[in-house]
Amino acid sequence: MDKSAIRRHMALGVAVLTASGLLSLAGPGTGTAEAAALCSGRKVRTLPFSTGSVHIYKKRGYVCAVTLRKRQGAYAYMSVSVRAWRARPAVNRGLFRHHAGPVTAHIGHRRVLVTGSVGSDSVNSGWIRL
Rank of each mutant, 00 (worst) to 15 (best):
M1V: 11
I128R: 09
V82F: 07
S79R: 15
G31A: 08
A33H: 10
L47E: 06
S24A: 12
V66G: 04
G41P: 04
V66I: 14
R88D: 11
A90H: 09
N124P: 00
T46W: 00
R69L: 05
V114K: 09
L47R: 01
K59A: 13
S53H: 09
G52D: 07
G41Y: 01
Y77L: 10
L130N: 00
N92P: 07
L113F: 10
T30W: 01
T32M: 07
K3L: 13
R97V: 06
V82Y: 04
R93W: 04
R88I: 06
S40Q: 08
T115G: 05
Y75S: 12
G73V: 05
R97C: 01
P28H: 10
I56P: 05
P28E: 14
V80Y: 02
L25G: 04
S24T: 08
N124T: 08
R8S: 09
T67G: 04
L17T: 11
L113A: 09
L25F: 12
T104D: 01
P102T: 02
S125E: 03
N92L: 11
L95E: 11
G41W: 00
A65F: 06
V91G: 05
V44T: 11
L17D: 04
H55Y: 15
V103T: 00
K70D: 15
S81L: 08
M10V: 06
T104R: 13
G116S: 07
H109N: 14
I56E: 12
F96I: 03
V14A: 14
Y77M: 09
H9T: 09
K43D: 05
I107V: 15
V66P: 06
L95M: 13
R71N: 14
G126M: 03
A11C: 01
V63T: 09
A100C: 03
Y62V: 10
D121V: 13
T46K: 06
G31D: 11
A87N: 11
G126D: 03
E34C: 01
A74C: 06
V16M: 11
Y77C: 02
T30K: 10
A74R: 15
H98Y: 14
R42H: 07
G119Y: 01
G101P: 07
P89C: 06
V123E: 06
T32Q: 13
V66C: 08
V63S: 04
S20D: 02
Y75C: 01
Y57L: 03
A5P: 00
R111Q: 15
Y62E: 10
V82W: 03
E34R: 13
T30G: 15
Y57M: 04
R97W: 00
A15C: 05
A90V: 15
S50C: 03
Y62F: 13
L130C: 00
S81M: 10
H98L: 11
S125N: 05
L130T: 02
S122A: 15
G29S: 14
S120D: 07
A100Q: 00
H98K: 14
A105T: 04
S122T: 07
V118R: 00
R8A: 12
G119F: 02
R60N: 14
A76Q: 13
D121A: 14
S122W: 08
L22M: 12
F96L: 02
V82H: 03
R8Q: 12
R69I: 12
F49K: 01
L25A: 13
V44L: 10
G27D: 13
G13F: 09
S81V: 05
S81A: 11
H55F: 15
P102H: 01
W85H: 12
I128K: 03
K43C: 02
A15N: 03
